[in-house]
Every structure is written in C-alpha cells, then in structure tokens.
C-alpha cells in the first residue's frame, strides 16, 4: 500500500476541487480492497460520505432519483423500489453480504471493478507479473489462456475478457436508468447504456466518467404500467458469491402477447449486458417457452467462450428463459 492524502469533502464543490490523482471514496468496499492489492494507487482519497446525496426521491416525471450515496441495503429495502422496481431490489439483495450492502453505495456499485483473479493480482501488469491490459495497456491478458471459468463471453475483445461483476447494474440496464454527474466541466446526463464501456483495444477505460467527475444521482424512468420485473442470479453457492449468469427482465404481457420487454444479463458480459436482440425476439410474440428460448438464443448469439467458461453460454440461456417465465407468469 502507498501513502495517500485523505480529505473529507463537506460539499460537492469541495469534492470536485480535489487534486488530480485523487479518488472518491464512498463505502470503500471495493476501493480499499484494491488499494491493499496495489491495484489502485491513488495519491489521495476524497471522502464523499458527507455529501447530501443519500436520498431516494420521486421525480416530477414519476421516475425515481437515487442519490449516489444511498447505501445498497437502503435502496433494496426502499418501499418505492420494492413496489415499482422489484428487479432492482432483488438484484441488490442478491449481491455481496448484508454487512457489505450496509456500506456499499449506489455510486460505488456502478464503479466497482472486475473480479478477474489476474487483474486483482498485486503484480499484474508489471514486469514478471501476469499480463493485464486493464492494469497496464499492452502487457497482455493472462486470462485468455489461464483460469477463466468466471470470465465473460459477451463484449469481449482479444485484449480483455474480464466480467463486469455488478448485480445492481444489470437491473439498472433493464430499467433504462440515466446517470447524473457533476464534474470540473459542469453537469451532465449519461444514458446507462453509454456509461460502461466494452474493452475493445482500451480495456483500461471502463466508463464514460472524466477524471474528477462525480456521480451524483441515478435516475430511473417512470415505472412501466402493468409490467412485472424479476432478477435471477445463478452462482456456485447459495449466497455471497458473484454470478455465473444472471438476468434482469422487465416485461408486460397483454392478451398472451409480449408488449414490453427489457432484458439484461450479468456474469457473462464485459459490461452490464443489455440484450436488444432478446428484446426484439420477444416483442409481440406469444409469451411461451418457445419464444423465451428464441430470445435466449438471440441474446447469446454472439457469445465467445474461452475454454473453461464455455458452460456459461448454455447457463445464461437457461437463466434468460427462467427469468422470462417468472416475469410473465
């Protein structure tokens, strides 16, 4: 671990004024780990726990505004979220442990980094260490030919196959959330789909944030009337483990036909994976097993396994089918 400066920001302006090379620290459940592993070496930490971003409020348009500092457990148990955005509550509660969720924040969860064992190895990307293009661009990717059972099959590149680990983000992708930020250059709104980046040739660039830019809120649109939403997570043990495959669905059935469908997947993509292909395969079709299997096939059409993770393709399909069944039952 390196030495660093610690400051506690009393206001958003103060937080934004922090020196470059510094990082915001919210719950610290990802960042402190990564600092101990020498993956993150910030010169300073700006503690944002005092910022007035800890509320969940209804927006004039009927949507919901979630402060970046709202804890994962508070968000999961929020009555409004449980009623209108069940998929989000379920996704949050399927993640980590109660203790972690009590600390983890909405903003921190959005920005959590991959659990790739090579990426998290202290010496990765250094001479003599494992290749990791996320840690040091150009150093290679040890996971390609290594222990890659947990790795992604969608959105990968020949530079990186690291999975985006978040459950919350999968639900937000299906809910078509938008992200509000404030940075040295002012405020902006980023569509959820544009926030996380696929690795391509630049796996070290993981999201749309500019240096020093702060996530202030996540906005959810007005709930879709008559729709039902579900999150399903499949994993190696019953709790306290990341997804091998997960699925978030928001769907509405009328007269036996699917009138609205949003499908996103976790555990299989290099980012929270919204599947427009699956949605297209569902729209207007009869809500039955055959349709669901078609949608699942469409969702995994471009999947690219790397040896040990080949099973994820079939597992993800089954996960999609079951989640669709649950959301349309």
């Amino acid at each position: 671990m390196q030495t660093f400066q610690y400051t506690k920001a009393a206001s958003i302006d103060k937080a934004l004024g922090a020196a470059s090379g510094a990082k915001f620290i919210a719950g610290g459940t990802t960042l402190v780990d990564l600092m101990k592993l020498s993956v993150e070496k910030p010169s300073g930490l700006v503690d944002i726990n005092l910022l007035p971003l800890d509320k969940v409020e209804t927006l004039p348009n009927g949507g919901l505004r979630i402060g970046a500092m709202v804890r994962n457990s508070d968000l999961a148990w929020n009555a409004e979220v449980q009623k209108n955005y069940a998929v989000l509550s379920q996704a949050l509660l399927s993640g980590a442990s109660p203790q972690l969720r009590n600390m983890a924040t909405t903003g921190g969860n959005l920005l959590q980094r991959t659990r790739c064992v090579y990426f998290r190895e202290p010496s990765a990307g250094t001479p003599g260490g494992y290749g990791c293009n996320k840690r040091t661009p150009g150093s290679g990717c040890a996971a390609m030919e290594g222990f890659n059972r947990m790795h992604a099959v969608l959105g990968t590149s020949d530079k990186c196959i690291a999975t985006h680990p978040s459950d919350m983000c999968v639900a937000m992708a299906a809910l078509e959330a938008t992200i509000q930020t404030e940075g040295p250059k002012g405020k902006r709104t980023i569509a959820f789909a544009d926030f996380h980046k696929v690795p391509g040739d630049t796996p070290h660039l993981e999201n749309a944030l500019e240096p020093g830019e702060l996530v202030t809120y996540v906005d959810l649109p007005k709930p879709v009337e008559g729709a039902k939403s579900v999150y399903l997570k499949l994993r190696d043990r019953a709790s306290y483990e990341f997804a091998l495959a997960s699925c978030a669905v928001v769907a509405k059935v009328e007269g036996g036909r699917i009138r609205y469908a949003r499908v996103a997947m976790g555990g299989v993509g290099t980012k929270p994976w919204r599947s427009h292909e699956a949605e297209a395969a569902l729209m207007g079709k009869a809500a039955n097993a055959e349709t669901f299997r078609h949608a699942a096939e469409a969702a995994l059409k471009d999947a690219k396994p790397h040896g040990e993770n080949a099973f994820k393709v079939e597992l993800a399909k089954r996960c999609v089918v079951r989640t669709l069944k649950m959301a349309t039952a």
Partner: peptide, 25 residues
C-alpha cells in the same frame, strides 16, 4: 485449489475465490 497452469500459483488463493459453504448452503 487451482494452480495457475503457467506460474503454479494457487490462483484462487483467497476467500473471495476459494469457495466454502455459507449458511445459506
């Protein structure tokens, strides 16, 4: 315990990656 095929490191050598049952199991 999985040994990394190229280096011989126990690559899942932490409680995050080496799974044991939790109460829910």
């Amino acid at each position: 315990t999985v040994y990394e095929p190229h280096t011989g490191q126990p690559i899942n050598g932490s409680f995050a990656d080496y799974l044991v049952p939790v109460c829910a199991d």
